[in-house]
Amino acid sequence: MTQKLTFTTASVRNLVISNPTDALYYEVLTPKWESHQTTVRRLDTHANRYDTVGSVRSQSGKPVAVSMYNGEFVNEELWLRKIEGQGRQSRWEFDDGEGNYFSWAVAGSNFELRSLDESGTQSPTPIATFYPHRRHFMVTMVSQQAFLEIESSVVDSLDTVLVSLLVLEQKRRKCSL
């Protein structure tokens, strides 16, 4: 069974990411007075509060360091490792800190997430797919909001998956993939 998480704006620095029932609800904030740091917070509906799940430091709009769960900042290239492929078939690997390994790859205009086993082999089918926003005639109003379609197996690692996706999308928009 899949879930659809909708991105409320075309920005990757200030938005809300949620499913239709708001059971999964994330807030991404980059305040003007701290424009070099983007914070990702998850709404804990039981305690009715936000928990910080990740932070991304940027320099000139490009992500340079990542922190998960208020831990130490780690160089973005060490946290999200680029694996060179043939032609433009590169992928970016990361782990969720609990022994699960994942890999993002570009598939047309989308990003696809696959799980990795102990030997580094990717799952045959994607477990999540990110569809970026679309605009009328590529320049006017947004005709389709961005969304992330996830399998139920991804929910346990969703914090790390979303932070990695935001880092990759920032890099894509700065043409530094």
Results as ranks from 00 to 15, higher is better:
residue 19 N to M: 06
residue 19 N to V: 08
residue 19 N to W: 11
residue 20 P to S: 09
residue 24 L to W: 04
residue 26 Y to E: 03
residue 28 V to A: 02
residue 29 L to M: 09
residue 29 L to I: 11
residue 30 T to A: 02
residue 32 K to C: 04
residue 34 E to V: 05
residue 34 E to H: 15
residue 39 T to D: 03
residue 39 T to H: 10
residue 40 V to D: 01
residue 40 V to G: 05
residue 40 V to E: 01
residue 43 L to I: 08
residue 44 D to R: 10
residue 47 A to M: 08
residue 48 N to D: 11
residue 49 R to H: 12
residue 50 Y to P: 02
residue 51 D to Q: 10
residue 51 D to A: 05
residue 53 V to W: 05
residue 53 V to M: 03
residue 54 G to P: 01
residue 54 G to L: 03
residue 54 G to N: 02
residue 55 S to N: 14
residue 56 V to K: 01
residue 57 R to G: 02
residue 58 S to V: 00
residue 59 Q to N: 14
residue 59 Q to K: 15
residue 59 Q to I: 01
residue 61 G to S: 06
residue 62 K to Q: 13
residue 62 K to T: 06
residue 62 K to P: 02
residue 62 K to C: 10
residue 66 V to Y: 00
residue 67 S to A: 14
residue 68 M to Y: 08
residue 69 Y to D: 13
residue 70 N to K: 13
residue 70 N to S: 07
residue 71 G to H: 13
residue 72 E to L: 04
residue 74 V to I: 11
residue 74 V to S: 11
residue 74 V to P: 00
residue 75 N to Q: 15
residue 76 E to N: 09
residue 76 E to M: 14
residue 78 L to I: 00
residue 80 L to F: 14
residue 81 R to M: 10
residue 82 K to P: 13
residue 83 I to L: 06
residue 84 E to Y: 14
residue 84 E to L: 05
residue 85 G to P: 00
residue 86 Q to R: 15
residue 89 Q to F: 14
residue 90 S to C: 00
residue 91 R to H: 12
residue 92 W to R: 05
residue 93 E to F: 00
residue 93 E to A: 03
residue 94 F to T: 08
residue 95 D to W: 00
residue 97 G to R: 03
residue 97 G to P: 06
residue 99 G to T: 09
residue 101 Y to E: 05
residue 101 Y to M: 01
residue 101 Y to W: 08
residue 103 S to Y: 10
residue 103 S to F: 12
residue 105 A to E: 08
residue 105 A to M: 10
residue 105 A to P: 07
residue 105 A to W: 13
residue 106 V to P: 10
residue 108 G to M: 06
residue 110 N to P: 02
residue 110 N to M: 06
residue 112 E to D: 04
residue 114 R to K: 14
residue 115 S to K: 06
residue 115 S to Y: 04
residue 115 S to G: 11
residue 116 L to E: 04
residue 116 L to I: 05
residue 116 L to Y: 07
residue 119 S to T: 15
residue 119 S to Y: 10
residue 121 T to F: 04
residue 122 Q to D: 07
residue 122 Q to V: 14
residue 123 S to Y: 09
residue 123 S to Q: 05
residue 123 S to P: 04
residue 125 T to F: 12
residue 125 T to W: 10
residue 126 P to V: 03
residue 128 A to Y: 15
residue 129 T to S: 13
residue 129 T to N: 09
residue 129 T to P: 10
residue 129 T to L: 06
residue 130 F to L: 03
residue 130 F to M: 01
residue 130 F to P: 01
residue 132 P to Q: 02
residue 132 P to W: 02
residue 133 H to T: 07
residue 136 H to D: 07
residue 139 V to G: 04
residue 146 A to S: 13
residue 146 A to W: 13
residue 147 F to N: 09
residue 149 E to A: 11
residue 149 E to D: 09
residue 150 I to T: 12
residue 151 E to Q: 15
residue 152 S to Y: 01
residue 152 S to H: 08
residue 153 S to E: 03
residue 155 V to F: 00
residue 155 V to G: 05
residue 156 D to E: 14
residue 156 D to T: 12
residue 157 S to D: 06
residue 158 L to H: 07
residue 159 D to T: 04
residue 160 T to I: 05
residue 161 V to C: 12
residue 161 V to F: 15
residue 161 V to T: 11
residue 163 V to A: 07
residue 164 S to F: 00
residue 164 S to H: 12
residue 164 S to D: 09
